[in-house]
């Protein structure tokens, strides 16, 4: 999926969080978004997802303005620490990943996805019994339930152990190789073995966008 952001400015009440941000991604690009806490990384992706209404500037997905874009099913999203998810109430992995008329995959394809991401064995477990890394992968599978063309990951490896971080980025790299555009918010770019093509660094609301050589040689 192609993503174009031009002259995006966004603020909460009287505080400007994003100032005049512009960048462009082609299908199959892999963007790393970096910046300190509060630099507006999550705010930016929430604008792209249409969760934050954009007062000034333009965002388009596959050349369609997001105010007219009605197919966010094409966008997979893994929120930061799954903060929007209501925990503690018992629910199994399978119950979260229910195939409904809102998902594009069949029951068999779902099982394939679970196997590919490595959580087939825990599909009937209560999510409150899972480790951080397992839970992470559940949400990855959920974001893939619609065969997304754009995958947005907001600090997906917080609280996940080193081995699982490596496995996780391996999976993300594979998905990217299949042609899915990826936007990854990350705190520590050196920690990951992700193969970025572009980098956007946010500082005090301003952005620096640049192309980087894909880390194939690593």
């Amino acid at each position: 999926m192609r993503v174009a952001v031009s002259n995006l400015t966004f603020g909460y009440d009287y505080r400007t969080v994003l100032k005049d941000i512009s960048f462009r991604l082609n299908s199959g690009d892999f963007l790393a978004i970096i910046g300190n806490n509060g630099s507006g990384k999550s705010t930016l992706v929430k604008c792209i997802l249409g969760i934050n209404k954009v007062p000034s500037g333009r965002i388009s997905l596959d050349d369609i303005d997001i105010t007219e874009y009605h197919n966010f099913k094409n966008v997979g999203y893994v929120p930061q620490k799954f903060d929007e998810f209501n925990y503690e109430f018992p629910i199994t992995v399978n119950e979260i990943l229910q195939v409904s008329k809102y998902s594009k995959v069949t029951e068999d394809e779902k099982l394939e996805l679970l196997d590919k991401i490595g959580i087939l064995e825990i599909q009937n477990e209560n999510i409150n019994n899972l480790s951080g890394g397992q839970l992470q992968r559940v949400f990855i599978v959920r974001s893939l339930m619609n065969n997304p063309k754009l995958l947005i990951l907001d600090e997906p490896t917080v609280g996940v152990d080193a081995q699982n971080v490596e496995n996780f980025y391996q999976t993300v790299n594979e998905l990217n190789a299949e042609g899915i555009t990826i936007m990854l918010i990350t705190h520590n770019i050196r920690e990951s073995n992700a193969k970025f093509t572009h980098m956007l660094s946010l500082h005090n609301g301003e952005a620096l966008f640049k192309e980087v050589p894909r880390g194939d040689e690593e």
């Binding site: 997802l49 969760i51 009605h70 197919n71 966010f72 099913k73 966008v75 999203y77 929120p79 929007e84 809102y102 998902s103 959920r142 619609n146």
Partner: peptide, 8 residues
Amino acid sequence: EQYAKLLG
């Protein structure tokens, strides 16, 4: 809720 909105 947020995910539900994304699903349409």
